[in-house]
Design a protein around this nucleic acid. Structure first.
Lengths: 252, 252
DNA sequence: CTTGTCTTTGCACGTTTCTGCACGTTACTG
DNA sequence: CAGTAACGTGCAGAAACGTGCAAAGACAAG
């Protein structure tokens, strides 16, 4: 067992058990209590746990939350995700596409939000497994490995049986004339199916996607309710989209 | 062995084992520790792994986090997972249950294995997204958050349309008279459905589950092909199962 | 085939990190 | 308030580390 790994293990045990005891850890890991105590001391110094006589307790949740957030640098995606999360009303059924921005979306859903999320992305489903009140429906199908989402006939069929209030669509290109595009035909078909099954469709479009175009059109621009983007999105591209009649909402 | 090939091998080992130790790699590859250390330094410089004293850990926190979550009794789960992975023949369709042992199973599937894995666990699906040749089918449904698997009517229906060669079943209890049990009725029903749809069923049972029993029976012991367990499984429990007519295979 | 260059690898050596023990101190328990 | 368990510190041996260097092999040019 590597020393570095040991600290992770202590923290993991702390999360699952709610406490750790120095003596028990020493026995379990077959190390002296001195070494365990040293680890606990160092983890406490980093604010990763709360040291107490005999062992340790979890650090305050605020600390954990802070370390997680600062660890992520995708500012634009976080901003767009947060903006999108704010559009969801209690009781709604929301279809969520795959992708890192969508991941940020579900991560920012309010902890007390009661809603239903339908997704063909196993990653999104796993993320929401820890959400206390959101109901999650997974759309199955053949796994399209490149973007890690379910696709194929089974997925189409499942989507056809769902009606969603909102759909959050991820694309690789948002272009005034080429419309909304992505790099794979199967994926485009799935995204199109979702768009048809949802009352409103919002595009998750962090700035670098605006003005870009990929090979396969998902839907034309007028098929969506609005494009959500971040504060750093290029002015010119946004203006072009608005001229084309698309509503563009910028994150804070 | 080419140097570049060696680095790939190190990264592959890191993915499957969750860590690598410089000394072990040196012995395995019959090279000096210096050379291994050089490789690790370079891979760390490229951000492909996280260098720590004694070896290296995965660069992505997500991977590391999961490895750690499997807990202190990880060795047994890895051993059982590896044993189970070895039972899969090319061309077979394999149903895989949720759980950390199953996660180890798919992680140890040979990189060149051509097979189809069907699963109602989004976590397993995500894990297999990086496997080069395995085809993955996701079973959808309502997400049962506690164990992070799809369940409910939709899942049942989807499973009913599948015929698998093998099913790897995870349970919380393996008891000579109570049979195979788990802690949730819905989950038990899904597992039962899989058992009925598979030619052979193998139980993933790391030692501590033997002799234990939970509230809901999945299937009786005679419904499964064999129980896979680790070398540290209690002798007495294993003997009792064998007396009850169950084949028990221990991991080396 | 020979020569020169570049890469790879292992070794030597000084440095850093990890770990367990000894010892004195501090915190719990009855 | 006494006894015990847990604690922190200093220290030493062991293991791991990085660096510089030289030998061996690969490879292209001549």
């Amino acid at each position: 067992m590597l020393a570095a790994q040991r600290k992770d293990l202590i923290l993991a045990t702390l999360r699952t058990e709610g406490r750790v005891v120095a003596k028990e850890l020493a026995a379990e890991l077959e190390l002296s209590e001195d070494t365990i105590r040293r680890d606990l001391r160092e983890l406490a110094a980093d604010g990763r746990l709360h040291r107490v006589h005999g062992g340790a307790l979890p650090a305050s949740p605020a600390v954990a939350d802070f370390t997680v957030r600062t660890g992520i640098r995708q500012d634009a995606k976080v901003a767009v995700g947060r903006l999108a999360a704010g559009l969801v009303r209690p009781g709604q059924t929301v279809a969520v596409d795959g992708g890192t921005t969508a991941q940020q979306l579900v991560r920012h859903l309010a902890a007390d939000l009661r809603a239903t999320v339908v997704t063909h992305s196993p990653t999104i489903a796993v993320e929401l497994a820890t959400h206390p009140s959101v109901e999650v429906i997974i759309v199955g199908g053949r796994l399209f490995k490149h973007s890690v989402v379910a696709a194929g006939a089974a997925a189409h069929e499942a989507i056809g049986r769902i009606s969603a209030d909102l759909f959050f669509l991820g694309v690789t290109g948002i272009h005034p004339t080429a419309g909304l595009t992505t790099g794979d035909a199967d994926e485009a078909a799935i995204k199109r199916a979702w768009t048809q099954r949802a009352g409103e469709t919002y595009v998750l479009g962090s700035g670098e996607k605006i003005g870009a175009a990929s090979a396969f059109e998902v839907v034309p621009l007028d098929a969506v309710t609005a494009v959500l983007t971040d504060a750093d999105a290029p002015e010119r591209g946004v203006a072009e989209l608005r001229t084309a009649g698309v509503e563009v909402i910028r994150a804070g």
